[in-house]
Design a protein around this nucleic acid. Structure first.
Length: 212
DNA sequence: GACAACTCTCATGTTACTTCA
DNA sequence: ACTGAAGTAACATGAGAGTTG
């Protein structure tokens, strides 16, 4: 499972892990809404229709019937899903018996539920990456402007005096901290591999680090 | 041990149906 | 009443892992 950098304080991204309790806010609200309106069939009707399906499916050309799960069935399935995103055969059998459904129906429900979870997660990640891209674009624009300004101001070779040697430093030794945007010299502090990486890999938060 | 055949489960994509605005 | 969009149960398919002879 790929884990993206954690978001800034204003954007929170959660990664769902199988077996890890998912947030209730991710649950499809429609399931509740529709079931409030839905006519809940009697248990006997459910069993009868399920058995009919099973019989018809062996006849070769069954019209695909779509059964709506009752409120209670949905609730129990969701509860079970929160505990575990996958079921072993024993759990499946027992849950199916408890819900008065076929094990196959429970299996299909879990497959679809996992798919919905993943889709939601992907959408959130996509949204996060979009914002990240926007922030980087803005930062890039700002730096480009700054470079232009510096170029416009340039009248001669830089005359930065080294605090160590008290002599002028060449321009090539000047670097800018990507976080705090202060100009430092490589002579003063050579950039570590970690610092180089952090400059290339966007920080979790667009705000400059206080450590700088 | 290596292998093929089989079964099971999963992810992924699609279809068919239901509900609602 | 009709319709399109959204949600979702059911199905199809292919891959990977485990079992068995």
């Amino acid at each position: 499972m790929a884990v993206l950098p954690s978001a800034s304080s204003t954007l929170e991204l959660t990664i769902s892990v199988p077996g890890f309790a998912s947030s209730p806010t991710l649950l499809p609200s429609s399931s509740v809404k529709e079931l409030d309106i839905n006519q809940v069939p009697l248990e006997e009707d459910w069993m009868a229709s399920n058995m009919e399906d099973e019989e018809e499916s062996s006849n070769g050309d069954p019209p695909r019937k779509k059964l709506r799960l009752t409120k209670e069935q949905s609730r129990l399935l969701e509860e079970s899903f929160r505990q575990n995103h996958t079921l072993n055969p024993k759990q499946k059998e027992s849950l199916a018996m408890q819900l008065k459904l076929r094990p196959r129906q429970v299996e299909v429900w879990f497959q679809n539920r996992r798919a919905r979870s993943k889709l939601k997660q992907t959408e959130m990640e996509c949204e996060y990456l979009k914002r990240w891209f926007g922030s980087l674009t803005e930062q890039n624009r700002r730096l480009q402007r700054e470079v232009e300004e510096l170029r416009a101001m340039k009248v001669g070779p830089p005359t930065v005096i080294s605090p160590h040697s008290c002599e002028p430093l060449p321009a090539s030794t000047l670097t800018m901290c990507p976080r705090c945007e202060r100009v430092t010299t490589t002579a003063d502090k050579p950039p570590s591999a970690a610092a180089t990486l952090s400059a290339k890999v966007p920080p979790h938060s667009p705000q400059p680090s206080a450590a700088c």
